[in-house]
Design a protein around this nucleic acid. Structure first.
Lengths: 142, 142
DNA sequence: ATAGTTGTAATAAGACAAATTACAACAAAC
DNA sequence: GTTTGTTGTAATTTGTCTTATTACAACTAT
């Protein structure tokens, strides 16, 4: 199992906005063209990124812009903007309460799963859009 | 998105074996009863745990036993025994190669995604069955 | 008013998890 | 050597979630 592509797509969206929104109008169709993802999916993500106060998009007119400096936007922020905050690992639904293991498995694993999730997101929180754009610009200039 | 319940189920399986296999024959039906998971699912997992050399099960006779000391089995081992080693985060399939962002998004995120995955599994590798059984036995005695 | 865009609902297609049914292969016990 | 209980394995089904798609109302500058 793995996460959906929402984080990669949302990051792509924000990089396109960061790179081009000062010169051109970055519409959902422009982004759809760059990502090769359906425009409706893009628009739904733009809505979520708006809810998270990461971008602002102009209904009617069209075009999106960042509302924060690039170094204040982390990949953890982006993740939580577009994905649900579910537990990382699922449990089986109905372990047998009459078995000592079944009765305690949830308690045993819960905090350990949470901890594994936390260190991963801590790692994502260290990555800012700033860093990504800096590295991207270097790659483009070559 | 989240992982399947395979890790939780496999850990449950191994704890049942660790707890009871010295006294009783732990068959797939016994485990199915404790987990409330279909016996065929359990048997498939037992096969994978055998492939990973974590347990041994007796075809025909029935019953499974651990082949390693409890402190040599980590939750990372268990995960890789029963789940595929996929990337943690997916990418969108066909970013536009004519766009500077689309052309570089994969390169930008790949190592960062891998790193986030790595720290999570490092955390899982610190959890041994030993620790889980110790904590379980404390809970049972209460 | 028009044109281009966003916001939103509804539906469909594809992938995958988990359950289920069925049965062959196997090994001990009688 | 047949019976019994179990594992190994295939095939099918159900449900859930992701992504794509169609369609259109709402919005805003020109």
């Amino acid at each position: 199992m793995q996460f959906s592509s929402k984080l990669a797509i949302a990051t792509h969206i924000l990089l396109v906005i960061a790179e081009f929104s000062e010169k051109e109008k970055v519409t959902s169709d422009v982004i759809a063209g760059s990502t090769n993802v359906n425009p409706v999916i893009i628009r739904n993500m733009l809505l979520k990124l708006q809810d998270a106060k990461i971008i602002q998009t102009k209904a009617g007119v069209g075009g999106s812009e960042l509302t924060k400096p690039l170094n204040k936007i982390t990949m953890r922020d982006i993740f939580y903007a577009v994905e649900e905050d579910k537990d990382l690992f699922k449990f089986h639904a109905n372990p047998n309460e009459d078995c000592p293991v079944g009765r305690n498995i949830h308690k045993l694993l819960d905090k350990r799963f949470d901890n594994a999730k936390e260190v991963m997101f801590d790692e994502l929180s260290k990555i800012t859009l700033d860093q990504l754009k800096f590295e991207l610009d270097k790659l483009i200039k070559k």
